[in-house]
Simulated scan of single mutants.
Amino acid sequence: MSQWVLLRTLFAHIPLLVKLAFTVLLSGIAAGAIVHVLEPSKFPTWFDGIWWAFVTVSTVGYGDFVPESTTTRLLAILLIFAGVGFMTLLVTSFAGAAVQINQSTREGGVSFLGEGHIIIIGWNERSRHTITTIKEEKPHTKIVLIDETLQELPNAYKGIHFVRGNSSEDAVLKQANIGLASTVLITASHQGNEFTADAFSVLTTLAVKAQNPSVYTIVELLTRDQVVNATRAGADKCISSTQLTGDILTSNVIHPNTSEVISKLFEFERMSLLEIRPIHERMVGKSFVSLLSETYNSGYLPLGIKRGEQMLIHPHATLVIEADDELIIIASQAK
């Protein structure tokens, strides 16, 4: 009795598609074997009988094998009613499963299985712009979007894998395959106050770094007060979007003639021309002004020097270049 209960339990856990496929396969083989036994002259081999059975079940009916005896024809009628019914149910089940998987993918319920991808957390105008720009510049980049407010991924973003849920939860991050991601971008939520939004970004950073300490993590913050906490949480780069926007607005107010220049510099096509390059050995010991003609003739314009954590923009002409310095440049558009 206990063995029968165990078998029933195991059978109940078998997926419906597997049950249907097994039923169709078994009924076809059984019917083919029986017709071979009943009419060996018409069905010379076991395979001929099985072939006829599956052709009949699939409603193709080539007509290359036709039963003649009454018994075999009754078996054919039974096979048509039972086998075709199971086959139809199998096909519709496959179609239903495909539709369900597609719907689950759009609604963020399917796990991502790739690697080397970029995870973008938060659905807002900044993340939309980031996704669009990345896809334009590098179309083959794999992107996973995590958001809990979005009900369904818009049709315009078909190449993006969507995961719906709270980005600070381990299960949601695992669904996005955080362990094999290359970069994580955490955008700030504008719902609620700035402190709450930044606190959630820091919490998400902790969850990300707990599962993949080596992933490069960029965090958008609304206040500079939380930069220290985000850095402690493991953020590799913190961007204070409020201060950045405020600086641009202030510059436009105080220096209105420079507004168009700033706007052009902040367009991605021109921002991508900004580079940080290592100092060549022959430049070490020279003054910054002596680099201008040499670098400009090479197709790029030096803006400043990166020395450790310091960014020296437009330094004094007599600044001496050191071995560990890096050169901040604007590369030529014709590079």
Results as ranks from 00 to 15, higher is better:
V66W: 00
V66Y: 00
E148G: 10
E326V: 09
S111T: 07
N155M: 13
S240Q: 10
N177M: 04
A334V: 07
E269Q: 13
V5C: 04
M87I: 08
S168D: 13
L145F: 09
N102W: 14
K335S: 13
T45W: 10
L206P: 02
T231Q: 09
R282E: 09
P278E: 09
E137T: 12
I14D: 01
L292V: 05
G28P: 03
P315R: 11
I239G: 05
V163M: 09
L74M: 03
T72S: 11
F11A: 08
D48H: 07
W52C: 03
E115S: 02
H161P: 04
A323S: 12
I134Y: 05
A171N: 03
W52A: 02
F54R: 00
Y296E: 12
L38I: 10
R277M: 14
L291M: 03
Y216H: 03
Y216C: 02
Q211T: 03
H140N: 06
L312H: 06
R224I: 15
A97V: 15
K174E: 07
A233C: 12
T187K: 11
N212Q: 01
K264C: 14
K237P: 06
A199M: 14
G108R: 05
S259Y: 15
R73C: 04
G165E: 04
M271E: 07
R73K: 11
E275S: 15
L10K: 10
E220M: 09
H190T: 14
F195D: 13
R8T: 10
Q100L: 15
T223I: 11
P154M: 12
G285V: 10
K286D: 07
E194R: 10
H36Q: 06
I119P: 02
Q175K: 10
L145H: 09
T23H: 02
I186T: 05
S332W: 10
N155W: 11
L222I: 11
A12E: 11
T72G: 06
E125H: 15
A76G: 00
K158F: 09
G96R: 14
L265C: 06
S263N: 05
H314Y: 15
S241Y: 12
K209A: 04
I329W: 13
N229H: 08
S240W: 08
F268S: 05
V172K: 03
E269A: 15
E107C: 13
R126L: 15
V144R: 00
R270C: 04
N166I: 15
L78W: 02
L273F: 06
L74W: 01
V163L: 06
V227T: 15
F43Y: 07
N124K: 15
I121R: 01
L150H: 00
L6T: 04
T71G: 04
L75Y: 00
D324N: 14
A156T: 05
T130Q: 07
L185D: 01
E68C: 08
S263Y: 07
L17C: 03
F43I: 06
I146P: 04
V66D: 00
A210V: 08
P256G: 09
A235E: 06
I101A: 12
T204Y: 04
L180F: 02
